[in-house]
Amino acid sequence: MDVDLKIENLSVYFGQKQILDSISFEIPARSITAIIGPSGCGKSTFVRTINRMNDRFDDFSHKGSIIFDGKDVLSNDYPVEELRKKIGMVFQKPNPFPKSIYENVVFGLKIHGVKDRKILDETVKSSLESASLYDQVKDRLSMNAYKLSGGQQQRLCIARALAIKPEILLLDEPTSAIDPLATKQIEEVLEQISKEITILIVTHNIQQAARIADYIAFFYMGKLVEFSKAEKILNAPNEKLTDDYLTGMYG
């Protein structure tokens, strides 16, 4: 098993409040790891800590480390822009820029200095194809992204994240704001791209985790209760807490 991210004793605080408590586990490469748990368990904070989206909050602080390519991404020496280039993110609510579809996809490339028109065009095509959006929008790439449906917008956000060729893609409940049909399409996209990219998806939907995840991490009250292969967690969890959650004792 290839390891892509190694979480070591990670604790996260907002001001005095502890959100995550000594999390340690290893995220396998080129697979889908789902993070599940009741709301408020810290799963969202966890993924946002990985690409340091929480840095801009003044009262954020952490202990422990996240090792990626042999380096601690949480250390101040690690350039945050480089990190985010390698670890992409898709958010809960689709958040395309109010620009054209084309400009949305190439945004990441442009800010990292790519100007070659040919590369940009090719990337737009390949990224949209990976997000299985290309066929629907290929004739209207200059259309404002806001005119797309919610599900299409979310797939555009995936394409936008893929355009800068990340090694890891973080998704924070990416289907919670869109309809079931669009959810299915996105799940298919994720399964497809997980052959090349490590995927870490936060979800409150156990069925979704069951459908797509290779591995599952169960968080509860800021702690990692259990991490294992998906079948193991779903069929025979080690912890009673996990079992209670899966059987719907609380949610």
């Binding site: 958040n95 109010p98 990292h112 936008r160 994240a161």
Partner: peptide, 15 residues
């Protein structure tokens, strides 16, 4: 301007 646009651009490595 809504914050999620800022987050989107930061997540792509924007300064």
């Amino acid at each position: 301007v809504p914050n999620d646009l800022r987050e989107a651009s930061y997540s792509l490595g924007a300064k």
